[in-house]
Each structure stands twice: as C-alpha cells, then as structure tokens.
Nucleic acid binder design. Structure first.
Length: 489
RNA sequence: GGUUUCUUGGCCGAGCGGCUAGGCACCGGUCUGCAAAACCGUCUACUCCGGUUCGAAUCCGGAAGAAACCUCCA
C-alpha cells in the first residue's frame, strides 16, 4: 500500500510530502526535558505527539532512529553573568549534588513516560555526557569566524552570520526588528549585540556545574547540546526535528545558526512543533506556576483536580486534539475524555465475541482507508479517533443484531482497531481484565460470598463454590484466619 | 511595541469553497427486576462588518477579543 504522508513544516509554514533523505531510514530529534522538576501536563504533549509520530513512521515500515535528549546541564536562569542555573539552584536549596537532582528527575520523567505508554526513544543522550562534542563544535564555529571569545565566554555572532544566512527564517523574525525590539539588556552583557547568544559560559566561583574547556572552566550555552547531539547521532542532515512551539525562538533558531555555521548546510528537513496546553486560556508552564504535574493527575491530589485521571485518559485527551492546536485543560474535558476512552475500550472487548454473517452492512475497507488518510494528513489523531468511533458504532450495532458483518470484514475491523488504537495511538486497556491483580480480586469476592453462605449455615452453597472451583483446579482451604486459595495442577 | 497565530453549538474539538465531523452533556424513545451499558432519534454553531463567488465556517479587506514568542519554559 502506498500512503503519501504529509507533514506540516514550520520552516515553510506549509504541509509538505514526507520524503526521508535516506529512505527507509528516518532520523528524528526531539527536545526533551530539563530535569529539575516533576514533569507536568505540558511535558506530556510533545512526548505523546512525537510518540505517535514515531509509532506511525515505524508502522509505515520506516526504520526510525528517534533521539530525545535529557538536559542535565543547567541553563542559566537569566542572561546576566551572575545568573545561576536551574539545576544548581535546586541542588543548593536541597543540599544535593546537581547530578542527584538530574538523576532523580530523569527517573521520575521516565516513570511518567512509561505510564503514558510512550515508547522509549532509540537514544536518549544527556547534555553532560557530550561536553566534548559541544566544545569541538564551538571550536569549529570560532574557526569559521562566527564565534568570538570574551573573558572565557564564547558567543555566536548573529550579525555576521546574518550577512550570509537568513537568521530568523524559522520563527519569521527579522534581525533589525529583533535588534530594535530587544527588551532591556540587563546591563553588563559581554555580547557584541543583544541578539548574540552564548556558546560557552565561564563559570562564576559559586557555580557548581562546570567543565574544563580551552576558554575557561564553565559550561556550554543552552542551545548547543541539541546541535551537537543531533549531529552526533543523526548526522549533519536529518529528517525531523521536533519540540514545543515555545522552543521555536530562540532555541531552534539558534540551533539552525550553529549547525549551519558548523556544517556549512541546513541540517533539518522538517521542523515539527506541537502547540501548548493551556489552563484557563493561558499556557501551562513552569515559570507561570500554573502547571499540574503528571503524578498529580494520576493520583488526583491537586486542588484544581476534581478526581484522579489515569495515564490513558491523559493520553486520549491529548490525542483528541490535533498536535498543532492549543488544548485547554479542564476537569470537564478530561472527564469526557475518560468516558470516550472507556466507550472505545469497551467496544474493543465486544469485538472479540462478535459473530459474523453472510453480509456486511458497513464498508470496513473504506473505514480503514479513512483512518490512513487521517494519519497521513499531518498525523490528524482527532480525525482518526472520530473514525474509530464510527467503528465503535458498527461493533455495537452488530452486537445488538441490528447490523451484520462478514467474517472477512470482522477480521479487518479487528486489525483496524489493533493497528490504529493500540499500535499507532498507543492506547491500552486499563480495565481490570488486563490487570494482573484480577484473579486475587475475583477470588476475594468469591470467598466473601462463600463466607456469607457459611455464616448463614447455607452449606449447600458454600460447598458448591468449593467443589466448582476444584473443578477448575482452584483449591480452597479453610484455616483459622479464614479461607485461602491456591492453584493445583 | 514587534512577530506569529487563533476566535466553531452547553463543554472539548475537527474542518483548507458546495457533502451529518467526532466525543462528552442534555432531551425523547427501544431494551431492562433495579442499575449500568448498548441502540435509534432530536436539539443547540461557525466573534462582528464589508467584499469575491452561482455558492464561504472555509478566500480577501476591516473591526473587536484572546494567546504564544520577543527572558528560562514542552
């Protein structure tokens, strides 16, 4: 089957046919978290967005190398020289080694990602493990004359770069505007121009995270790691670079400048950006302090939450909106997502026992095509989900005997749900049926019923329960502390 | 202030010039010991004002409102 996938490229602001540089191989780099705090709902968005992109590309038989970094080198909180970085600050406050902070929060992040059923990236490089690569990159940039050193720090010369390249092409910014519109310069910058950005920063005495370099003991600038690590693992040119829209400027713009300066050519073919999750119409973010952590969602322990929401509810909620649209958080929206997901999952249980007939009242082939079309149109998961609900309607109608389906169509329908709901959208049934605790929980109910019967001296019933369980090799033994059960072979 | 984007029914959320998006909620019905589920049906839309067009939620112009980025943020 030949499916033309179309993706929206931020660089061209258009949908483009997806054609890998070196098919069937696809390289995808996504900006990961800075690990100095618990992951919140906003972090789930890119993770899930690029998870379904990863899943779908693999489903289309591409060989995908998916790289998502962990930023464990603290970025400066502000551009002033005496700025402290986020990880160091947290470490100082908690009296821990910065790497303890980074380790703790990356573990938490991974746990959340597993809960959300996000596949692990192929490579998850850490910035701190690639200091050498970053230093080499700075050397190259200085070599080509686009980096300059001032007192142990190295900056990228944006003005000079823009003479031969278009700085601002990704975010649609014009350098002159940037220069005239930059906010207050916070004084004492060593930079030649306010638009220049740091490649290497000399560490102040109190700065704990530091590495040696030809220029000073310090740390790499905050855009450099992505350029260095994407080049290392995906090559000088690769297919997809993803991340949140808030990273568009300056982060990704600077990445382009660095990589281009270094490699002499554009490195990324398709730039993909997910939109923000909002709360009361405003972006949910760390700096605004209006975020709700993923763990809070799963436990329900947050003032803003009326109840707990399972990881799959969160996943489904996010997938019900297109990744390039903002998505507004509310309890009402999450509750309807929860119900919708349940309906979908119930139908997937129903389909297993569905009976086929001579004829079909629905066109499953066409439904399948619509599902492919939805995903091929820039990963339109909400449309895909709408089509899956059409499938749900069919399943329920057939189950009710109001519609019919042939054996062939039934097989196709099962495959459709398996492919699109499970493999591509990465949904999974969280119901008890797929829960390992189920036997224990069921036996508890049965043993309680039997105990009630015994208390009522209804020994016929209590014996019947014991005998019938014995028939399926479950043995009940009455002990002083109550009944226990075990499996006999 | 600059750049970019958005404004759809009770809520969420698709839509890219003509065809019911979908989910949740509501209402009516079928089914039902009760409850739930399921099924059928119904009802609420395209911020406003102009224009292009046989025809616009969809294209163009204007107005109002909102957001993101311009500083770390997914």
């Amino acid at each position: 089957m030949d499916h033309q996938l179309v993706v929206y490229n931020t660089l061209s602001r258009k949908k483009e046919n997806f054609e890998p540089i070196n098919s069937p191989f696809v390289g995808m780099y996504v900006c990961g978290p800075t690990v100095y705090g618990d992951g919140h709902l906003g972090h789930a968005r890119p993770a899930i967005t690029f998870d379904i992109i990863f899943r779908y590309l693999q489903f289309l038989d591409y060989k995908v190398r998916y790289v998502r970094n962990i930023t464990d080198v603290g970025h400066l909180e502000n551009d002033a020289d005496e700025g402290e970085d986020k990880i160091s600050k947290k470490a100082r406050l908690d009296q821990l080694e910065p790497m303890e902070i980074a380790q703790y929060y990356s573990d938490r992040y991974h746990e959340n990602m597993d809960q959300l059923n996000c596949l692990k990236p192929s490579i998850e490089p850490r910035a701190s493990g690639h200091i050498i690569e970053q230093i080499e990159m700075i050397k190259k940039i200085i070599e080509v004359g686009l980096g300059y050193e001032v007192d142990g720090s190295v900056y990228f010369d944006v003005i000079k770069y823009s003479k031969t390249h278009e700085y601002g092409k990704l975010s649609g910014r014009v350098l002159e505007d940037l220069l005239s519109n930059t906010r207050d310069l916070d004084g004492q910058s060593e930079k030649r121009n306010p638009t220049d950005f740091a490649l290497w920063k000399k560490a102040q005495p109190e700065h704990i995270m530091r590495w040696p370099s030809p220029w000073s003991d310090g740390f790499p600038g905050w855009h450099l790691e992505c350029s260095a690590m994407s080049t290392k693992y995906l090559g000088e040119q690769f297919d997809i670079h993803g991340g949140g829209m808030d990273l568009l400027f300056p982060h990704h713009e600077c990445e382009i400048a660095q990589s281009t300066a270094c490699n002499g050519k554009e490195s990324v073919k398709y730039w993909l950006h997910n939109n923000m999750i909002t709360i009361n119409g405003q972006k949910m973010g760390k700096s605004l302090g209006n975020f709700i952590t993923l763990s809070d969602f799963f436990s329900g322990e947050n003032k803003l939450l009326e109840q707990a929401y399972s990881p799959m509810t969160i996943r489904f909620f996010i997938l019900q909106a297109h990744y390039r649209s903002t998505l507004d958080f509310s309890n009402e929206a999450l509750q309807s997502a929860e119900k919708g997901l349940k309906r979908l999952m119930t139908a997937m249980d129903t389909i297993v026992n569905l009976k086929s007939s001579e004829t079909s009242t629905s066109n499953i082939k066409e439904l399948e095509k619509k599902c492919y079309d939805a995903m091929n149109d820039d990963f339109n998961s909400p449309i895909l989900i709408a089509h899956l609900f059409e499938g749900v309607r069919i399943i329920n109608s057939v189950n009710d005997g109001k519609e019919s389906i042939t054996a062939e169509d039934l097989t196709l329908l099962k495959k459709l749900f398996n492919d699109f709901a499970i493999s591509i959208l990465g949904l999974k049934n969280e119901s008890l049926k797929n829960n390992n605790d189920l036997p224990d929980k069921l036996m508890e109910v049965i043993l309680n019923l039997r105990q009630t019967a015994k208390t009522n001296k209804d020994y016929a019933t209590s014996d019947k329960i014991r005998d019938e369980l014995k028939n399926i090799n479950i043995v009940i033994k009455d002990t002083k502390d109550g009944a226990v059960w075990s499996e006999e072979n």
